[in-house]
């Protein structure tokens, strides 16, 4: 009894540690003054001002647009590549997978500066396009790593059977292979999307002064003090993530219960 109680307390402490700063963000989003340390009374005004703050809204929009385009693009190219790679002979397969691993293993800062040097070398002005290309680059490996295991599980004869029954290769891919590997494709897409939304370091090095995402905006504010509107925005994001995940989790656990 004592043992299970101490386990419970330990777990609560770990969760308290993980959520303390988030709690601070939420509490200070209702703070009457701009101070990040002193509580001066309750207000909702930051939430109102958030929707009039052009800088924050633009960077939120930029974050989302880069995340959507880069993860969709990476999912399409990556899924196709995974199918191609899974059919290759051992040596070229190993070579390509190793190169694909490089952005996963490199520290973000090294990926960031090497891409920045590439863009400078090619005389591409740093901004939206370069940040997008950088995000596609670090998203691609995660899509491939998510899809490849699904292809490994796939029975290769199913595809041949489809062809024998008169399906064109394109049709067989669409109707036979794609549905089978769909869970991997979706995992890859979600992974890519979250990584893109969350990225600061690589974006920081691959964009110019004219185009910043949310992370860069927060970074540039951190020295002078983050605007309370950011706290309000993060609180809204936190609540939506929480609701979304709890909903997904609820449905998943219901599914597993139904199966069992």
């Amino acid at each position: 009894m004592v043992k299970s109680l101490s386990k419970k307390i330990y777990l609560y402490l770990i969760f308290f540690f993980l959520y303390a700063p988030i709690l601070i963000l939420i509490v200070f989003s209702f703070n009457g003054s701009k101070s990040r340390a002193h509580w001066t009374g309750f207000t909702l005004s930051w939430y109102g001002q958030l929707f009039h703050d052009q800088q924050i809204l633009t960077s939120l929009y930029n974050t989302l647009i880069v995340a959507v385009i880069s993860s969709l693009f990476a999912t399409v190219i990556g899924t196709a590549a995974a199918i191609g790679i899974s059919r290759m002979r051992k040596l070229p397969k190993a070579m390509i997978i190793n190169v694909t691993y490089i952005p996963v293993l490199s520290p973000d800062i090294v990926t960031g500066i090497s891409l920045m040097l590439l863009f400078v070398f090619l005389h591409i002005p740093l901004g939206f396009i370069t940040m997008l290309m950088a995000h596609i680059t670090f998203n691609l490996p995660f899509v491939i790593l998510a899809v490849l295991p699904k292809l490994k599980q796939l029975n290769s004869q199913v595809f041949d059977a489809a062809l024998d029954l008169g399906a064109t290769p394109m049709y067989a891919y669409k109707k036979v292979i794609l549905p089978e590997i769909m869970p991997g494709v979706i995992t890859g897409f979600l992974l890519a999307f979250t990584l893109s939304i969350d990225d600061f370091v690589i974006s920081f090095f691959t964009t110019g002064s004219g185009f910043s995402n949310l992370a860069i905006t927060i970074y540039s504010m951190a020295r002078r003090g983050i605007k309370p509107e950011i706290n309000a925005l993060l609180t809204l994001m936190f609540i939506s993530i929480l609701l979304l995940l709890l909903l997904v989790n609820y449905r998943m656990s219901k599914d597993t219960k139904n199966k069992a």
Binding site: L11, F15, L18, Y19, A20, P21, I22, I24, L25, F28, R36, A37, T194, D198, F200, L214, A215, I218, Y219, A222, I226, I230, N231, L234, M237, F238, I241, L242, L245, L246, N249, M252, S253
Partner: peptide
């Protein structure tokens, strides 16, 4: 278990700069 794991993951989805900044307040 699944619920608790989701709770471990959620903080990682919040912008890490903002979370680190919140530590400054603390």
């Amino acid at each position: 278990r699944n619920m608790l794991i989701v709770l471990v993951i959620i903080p990682m989805w919040m912008n890490f700069l903002a979370r680190t900044y919140a530590w400054m307040t603390l």
